[in-house]
Structure formats: structure tokens, C-alpha cells
């Protein structure tokens, strides 16, 4: 079982890499903070320590950088975990978290909240609930489509998703072009600028409620990639497992998209990166996807807030990095590809 031990080691390595990236990210920004002070402030939370940093440093670190860094990691983790899970239960390497309309619904929810002069937190909550609503509709309609259940889900995902996209366009059309329209467009490009600790408090519960069962179900995901008939013959209640995975993935995706806006490519590309590193077995693939997703979005967000004087929206960066990288990945081959 050399490969298994090797993979466990790789997952541990990824975790260490993530920790390192998080610590370094705290120091980065328009207001640089030395590593010594970052560690000092972190330690002072668990151990009484003489303050050798300014109050302003502590505020920047805890009120601005902390929520942003944590959310970048969480959103990246959620999107890539659900991408990997969907690829398994839909038996399709091209599946991504928004396949059942979660993003389209969130976009509509956010646009609607902006149109109604919602504050930042209202926008997040509205995006979250419309995301859940969209996927519920998709699931409801798919149950009424005869034939293969996967095809039914994907078809009704496309239909309901494009309905909500049209609705979002309608909201854009009637929105005030001086302030509301730019706000909607900016939200759609995806960004973690301006997230606060309240966003963490809101998103963390659905994220954990989503990710934890996905991690527990990861052996079943392996079996489901074999197809419905084969998995059933191996004793798996295919519909129940797929339903559970969809619920959990939707919770995690909705919470992620609600705080970050549209961030594409992460959920498609990162699982494939993880597949290249640890293979297709979900026992290692899912933890590796979560960690790679967290690292990736954290790095991209660092670029987003540090590269230029203005913030570069996350969705633009993930597409610019993700798409070419995906081409590179799928043109390479390995024993388990």
C-alpha cells in the first residue's frame, strides 16, 4: 500500500503548505505587517503577551485581513470540494459546482438585493437563499423527467440556470445605472474585498454542514463513478447518496458564492489538479481538493489585492489562471488519468 501512504503524506504536505500560505498572506498588503508581529498578535490570543505592535496593526490584521484570508480559503475549499464531489456523482469529469444552477441563483439573489438597496450582509443572505432555491427547483423538475436521472438533473440545471440568468439580466436592465448596475456587475465578477467577520459567522455553518458529510461519503463517491447500475448492484442506494451529496454540495457552494460572488474555474480545475497529484480515489482526492482549493484561492486573492493599486476581481483572475492551466493539465497524461 505504498501509494496510500504516499498520498497521506502528500495531503499532510498540502496542509502544511496551506498553513504557511495563510501566515505569509497576513503580512501581505498595502499596509505590510512584519511576520514577527503577525505571529505575536496570533499568539496573544491564546497566551498573554506584551504588546509590541500598534493598535492599528492589530485592527488591520483582525478586522480586515483575517476575514478575507479565512474566507478565501473557505470559498476555495468549498468550490473545489463540491466540484470534485459532483464529478463523481455525475460520473463526468466536466462537472463543476454551478452545474445545478447554484451560481445562477446566487447571482439573481444578489442582484435583487442590490436593486432593493440591500446592504452588504443582506446581499450575501439573499444570494445564499436564492442559490438554495434554484437547486431545489432543479432537483424538483429533474424528478419529473423520465429516463436517466443524471441527464434529467443536468438538463433541468441548464434550463433553470438560464432562466435565473435571464432574470438577473432583467434586474440589470431596470437597475439604476449610476450606482446599482456597477454594484451588480462588480458582484458578478467575484471579489472578497470588503468581507468582514460577520460574513465568516454567516457562511461557516452551512460550509461545515456541507463539507463534513461530503468527507464522510467519499468512499461512496468512488463507487458512484462506476455508473448507476453497477453501484446499485454493489449495494449502494444510488439515489439517496446522490441526493445527500447534492444537498451538502449546494449548502457549501451557496455559502461560498454568497460571500465571494461569481468565482469560476476553481471547482472544475482544482479537482483535476488534485487528481494529478493523488489519483482519483476520493479517500485522498477530496481532502487534497479541499486543501488545493484553499491554497489556490488564497494565492489568487493575494494577487487580487496586491498586484495593482486597484483590486482585480477574483473571477477574472481565476479564469485567466484556470483556463490555460486546465488546457495544460488535460494535455498531460499519467497512469491514473
Amino acid at each position: 500500500m505504498g501509494r496510500n501512504w504516499g498520498n497521506t503524506f502528500i495531503v499532510a504536505g498540502l496542509f502544511a503548505l496551506l498553513l504557511g500560505a495563510v501566515i505569509i498572506s497576513f503580512g501581505l498588503g498595502r499596509y505590510p505587517i512584519p511576520l514577527r508581529e503577525v505571529l505575536g498578535i496570533a499568539l496573544s490570543k491564546i497566551y498573554p503577551l506584551g504588546q509590541f505592535w500598534t493598535d492599528r496593526t492589530e485592527t488591520v490584521l483582525l478586522q480586515i485581513r483575517f476575514p478575507r484570508i479565512i474566507l478565501a480559503c473557505l470559498v476555495g475549499a468549498c468550490l473545489s470540494a463540491t466540484g470534485a464531489a459532483y464529478q463523481g456523482v455525475f460520473q463526468n469529469p466536466m462537472a463543476a459546482p454551478d452545474i445545478l444552477g447554484a451560481s445562477a441563483g446566487a447571482a439573481f439573489g444578489a442582484a435583487l438585493a442590490i436593486l432593493n438597496h440591500g446592504r452588504s450582509f443582506t446581499i450575501t443572505v439573499s444570494a445564499f437563499f436564492f442559490s438554495l432555491l434554484t437547486v431545489s427547483l432543479v432537483y424538483f423538475f429533474s424528478r419529473r423527467i423520465k429516463g436517466k436521472s443524471i441527464l434529467g438533473l443536468i438538463l433541468s440545471g441548464i434550463v433553470v440556470g438560464s432562466l435565473f440568468s435571464a432574470a438577473t439580466s432583467l434586474v440589470k436592465l431596470v437597475a439604476d445605472p449610476t450606482d446599482q448596475l456597477p454594484a451588480i456587475i462588480y458582484w458578478l465578477m467575484g471579489s472578497l474585498a470588503g468581507v468582514g467577520n460577520s460574513d465568516i459567522r454567516f457562511a461557516i455553518i452551512p460550509m461545515i454542514l456541507g463539507l463534513a458529510p461530503l468527507l464522510l461519503l467519499r468512499w461512496r463517491m468512488n463507487v458512484l463513478t462506476m455508473g448507476d447500475d453497477e453501484s446499485r448492484a454493489m449495494g449502494i442506494n444510488v439515489h439517496r447518496i446522490r441526493f445527500l451529496v447534492i444537498i451538502c454540495s449546494t449548502l457549501a457552494t451557496a455559502a461560498g458564492v454568497a460571500v465571494s460572488g461569481m468565482v469560476g474555474w476553481v471547482g472544475l480545475v482544482i479537482p483535476h489538479v488534485a487528481r494529478k497529484i493523488v489519483g482519483n480515489n476520493y479517500l485522498h482526492l477530496l481532502p487534497a481538493s479541499i486543501l488545493c482549493g484553499a491554497i489556490f484561492l488564497l494565492l489568487v486573492d493575494n494577487v487580487s489585492r496586491n498586484l495593482l493599486a486597484v483590486e482585480i476581481p477574483l473571477g477574472i483572475l481565476t479564469a485567466f489562471i484556470g483556463a490555460p492551466f486546465f488546457i495544460y493539465l488535460i494535455t498531460r497524461r499519467g497512469e491514473y488519468s
Binding site: 464529478q87 463526468n92 455508473g227 446499485r232 454493489m234 449495494g235 480515489n281 491514473y336 488519468s337
Partner: peptide, 20 residues
């Protein structure tokens, strides 16, 4: 319950994902 009685050897087809 079925799986404990009968096992299935499917016709070969390429799996969506390659496993060891």
C-alpha cells in the same frame, strides 16, 4: 439486500475515472 445475494460483472466499458 440484493448485493448480498447477487454480484454483477458488467460488460467492459471505459470508466469515467481511472482507478488502480
Amino acid at each position: 439486500g440484493m448485493a448480498k445475494l447477487i454480484a454483477y460483472v458488467p460488460q467492459f466499458h471505459y470508466p469515467s475515472f481511472n482507478y488502480s
